[in-house]
């Protein structure tokens, strides 16, 4: 554990809770892509199946349980409890376009040809692109609420901070995980455009709007 990874994890947890709190307090899932949230739930379930057979630390276990439960709760709120407020008409990204390539990539790039390793690789690739339905939705509606922007910023920062963590780990322990690093870089690049809008608009007190 180093400071970059800790900050990354804090940012990740923050993102998850910002989203849950926003939906819960406003009693509305407007502007949130249920499809992205389903993809994230698949990501956590596929990656954290090792909860049952490998113990790394109490910290890891608690975080894994937290991500699985929070993402399931988010999906429940969007599709069941506040279904009436969910903006399904604008949430039209075809998730098979990310699910199938992630699965194919997992079969090509993995650390061993076992079910759990393939699931792990799949989850890493899927995580990199899981936000696309949400970004697509923001582009389609042309704007995002400030809380949604904060959520996206925290979620994007998490993988960016992980990149710093990987650089640090490479130099201090020689640790290098090519699959996670490549996917993490792609993931961070996908947020770059959003980061720019966030800094130039939301932080200046304006609403995030995407020009056509």
């Amino acid at each position: 554990m180093n400071l970059f990874r800790l900050m990354g994890d804090v940012s990740h947890v923050l993102a998850v809770f910002i989203l849950l709190a926003k939906i819960w307090r406003t009693r509305s899932a407007a502007g949130i892509s249920g499809r992205s949230q389903i993809l994230f739930t698949i990501v956590y379930l596929a990656r954290y199946m090792d909860l049952f057979f490998s113990f790394i630390s109490l910290y890891n276990t608690v975080m894994k349980l937290l991500f699985i439960s929070a993402s399931c709760a988010t999906v429940y709120l969007i599709y069941f409890k506040f279904r009436a407020t969910y903006d399904g008409n604008h949430d039209t990204f075809r998730i098979e376009f990310v699910l199938v390539p992630s699965l194919l990539l997992a079969f090509i790039f993995h650390y061993s040809m076992s079910f759990f390793e393939l699931a792990w690789s799949f989850s890493i690739f899927l995580e990199a692109v899981a936000i696309l339905p949400q970004l697509f939705m923001v582009t389609k509606t042309g704007e995002a609420e400030n809380i949604t922007s904060h959520y996206l910023f925290a979620l994007g920062s998490y993988r960016a901070l992980y990149i710093l963590n990987w650089i640090y780990r490479y130099y201090t322990e020689g640790h290098f995980d090519p699959i996670a690093v490549c996917a993490g870089i792609v993931q961070t690049i996908l947020y770059c455009d959003f980061f720019y809008l966030y800094v130039t608009k939301v932080l200046q007190g304006r609403k995030l709007q995407v020009l056509p």
Binding site: I56, Y111, E117, Y162, N165, D177, A180
Partner: peptide, 10 residues
């Protein structure tokens, strides 16, 4: 063994 050693991140 290396699986847990490798996937120690979230």
């Amino acid at each position: 063994f290396w699986r847990t050693a490798l996937h120690d991140e979230l």
